[in-house]
């Protein structure tokens, strides 16, 4: 709150996806590891069918969007919830290799934390 007041504008900053400042290393890594990541058109079929998402917040469609925007923080915990069951793989109308997107995202976040990206 102090920080926010000092600079005035920072209050709204967290609400904003500042695309020019966002870090897209994770997106680049995931795209490299799983090129079909780019094919998602956000239909939500994966999230609809998801076994894990039935129990707790885990949403591959949202994860895909957030990674593209460089918004990694909300994913840290979510990415660990996937059961790799593969239902999403059978549902995806774009043929995204969904399970590998999750694996690549998890690996990217680990690498990011170790400054390896």
């Amino acid at each position: 709150m102090d920080q926010a007041n000092k600079f005035g504008f920072t209050i709204n900053r967290s609400r904003l996806i500042d695309y020019d400042r966002s870090d897209r290393k994770v997106r680049d890594y995931v795209t490299l590891m799983e090129p079909s990541f780019r094919l998602c058109f956000a239909c939500g079929g994966c999230a609809a069918t998801c076994t894990a998402g039935y129990h707790k917040s885990f949403n591959l469609r949202r994860m895909n969007t957030l990674i593209r925007r460089g918004e990694i923080e909300p994913l840290r915990e979510e990415v660990t919830r996937c059961m790799l069951c593969g239902k999403c793989l059978l549902v995806c109308p774009r043929g995204v290799n969904t399970r590998n997107v999750v694996a690549a995202a998890a690996a990217a976040i680990r690498k990011l934390d170790r400054n390896e990206l």
Partner: peptide, 12 residues
């Protein structure tokens, strides 16, 4: 070809 044993194989 649908095997879940492969995490990386592309759909094509």
């Amino acid at each position: 070809g649908g095997s879940l044993g492969n995490l990386t194989l592309a759909s094509g």
